[in-house]
Design a binder for these strands. Structure first.
Lengths: 249, 249
DNA sequence: CGGTCAATTGATGTAGTTCAAGGTTAGTGG
DNA sequence: CCACTAACCTTGAACTACATCAATTGACCG
């Protein structure tokens, strides 16, 4: 007996070997699932980058530990995401499970072969790398400019977009990560994260299930949330480009 | 009559077509040089990504303009750098010359062909993409954790490393960008950048040529500069990894 | 029931922003 | 050659968003 997620069946109706893969996720199809308990490390920053992983279920955090012991979370990964794409010889960050999680792995060698051999996979591969780069840049904008409220709202929005199937519009979201994770991701302290949530509740933007441990968030006013995220209805190209001086030599 | 930069001769002793390139920069070899005046835009965020560029001379800034008109500089590019690698269909950022600059361009199609055709180029290509990703992550760490002084020192160090040939150890560096550029890159205000420079001068870490317009910096105490950058003698792998709680489910 | 751990809340401190002014250099035109 | 202007940079004073420190709450668990 086995569990099949529906969207995968559509992507690949037959069993395939890696080299016949129709999409990148097919490369992982026949790999064994590995189960991780909460907090379990997948690899450490600086390890030789010998595998590429697909998240099958659950959520992971990727992070760096800096010299003074603090932690910077550079991203969260959810079911369907692929880890370890744009890395060189060694992993740029550590990865660990937030809650229980299931992953599959293939060796880097095999993954690279699948991509280089199979012309079909290359566009998807480059698209994923490009997405990763875009996410990193968005995070730089967030960390450069946004205040605590904008950061939290951006975070919630991004989580909603990423973790809802196309068309679906769920009101409740279940955050797998704790407040400290959110703080380390948004460049804030846990106290500021907590206070900002309280403020958003008071404003009627969200509400929090008092039950479990404040991980279930109901989005009461999605439009307001989007406005408070301060992304100005997506980037405004071709206007305001006059800002910033022309540096003479 | 033509000008040849010495280090390039070593890389490729003969004239080559793109498909015979020994290294990525050879792909640009036969392209015409384009000259940019200070402030001249190369492309805008959101433009279709139709070219890849090599910086031949001078410096460029890549940046995003956010909804409220502010500017976030996500990187600087100097002679030898390649622009437009890990982008998808459209550029993720705008690029413009800081001072006068010279670039070469090849079409994306031709660049991609050169890379896919020529197995020799792929490792270099992936290494560059990986470097770009690593730089983005370092920037996230800087923006998440570092204070003004650490940011400025990190910036100066990185500039030195990037813009000095291996082995060379110049004491004076000539910053092509103005204070506002530095501020927009480091997530600070121009005033804080200025004040921090003053503080570093008072501490005897650097000194600034009073002549031109404060763009010439002499590094008086490189070791202290490195210490103040707060990167803790490179990342400390496999220690301090216990920090950060294990989130139960 | 006491212990633990995450989250919240309150009080206080501060690094960096904001606003405002002044200084230096370079360019322009009389 | 010297006003006049325009960039760019620096400096000062006041403010504020967030950090820090400290205490409390509430859920879970042996």
């Amino acid at each position: 007996m086995y569990i099949v997620r529906e969207q995968k069946i559509i992507a690949s109706p037959e069993m395939r070997t890696g080299s016949e893969a129709q999409c990148l996720r097919d490369v992982f199809r026949q790999q064994a699932s590995e189960h991780l308990t909460a907090g379990k490390s997948l690899f450490l920053e600086g390890d030789r980058a010998e595998h590429v992983f697909e998240v099958v279920e659950g959520a992971l955090r990727i992070f760096k530990i800096i010299s003074d012991g603090r932690r910077v979370i550079t991203g969260f990964l959810y079911s369907g995401d692929i880890i370890g794409l744009a890395v060189g010889q060694r992993y740029l960050y550590s990865a660990e499970a937030i809650s229980v999680a299931t992953v599959k792995r293939v060796s880097r060698r095999r993954f690279d072969l699948a991509v280089t051999d199979n012309q079909r996979l290359q566009p998807e591969f480059f698209a994923l790398v490009s997405d990763e780069m875009a996410a990193a840049q968005d995070q730089m904008v967030l960390l450069s400019c946004k205040n605590a409220e904008e950061r939290i709202c951006s975070f919630l929005l991004k989580f909603m977009k990423h973790n809802s199937l196309p068309g679906e519009r769920r009101r409740n979201i279940e955050l797998p990560m704790c407040r400290q994770d959110i703080a380390d991701y948004l460049g804030l302290t846990i106290e500021t994260v907590s206070r900002t949530f309280t403020k958003l509740i008071q404003k009627g933007v969200v509400s929090i299930e008092n039950s479990a441990l404040r991980h279930t968030i109901a989005i009461e006013r999605p439009a307001l949330l989007a406005r408070l995220a301060g992304d100005g209805e997506e980037v405004c190209w071709h206007e305001g480009l006059m800002a910033g001086q022309q540096a003479g030599h």
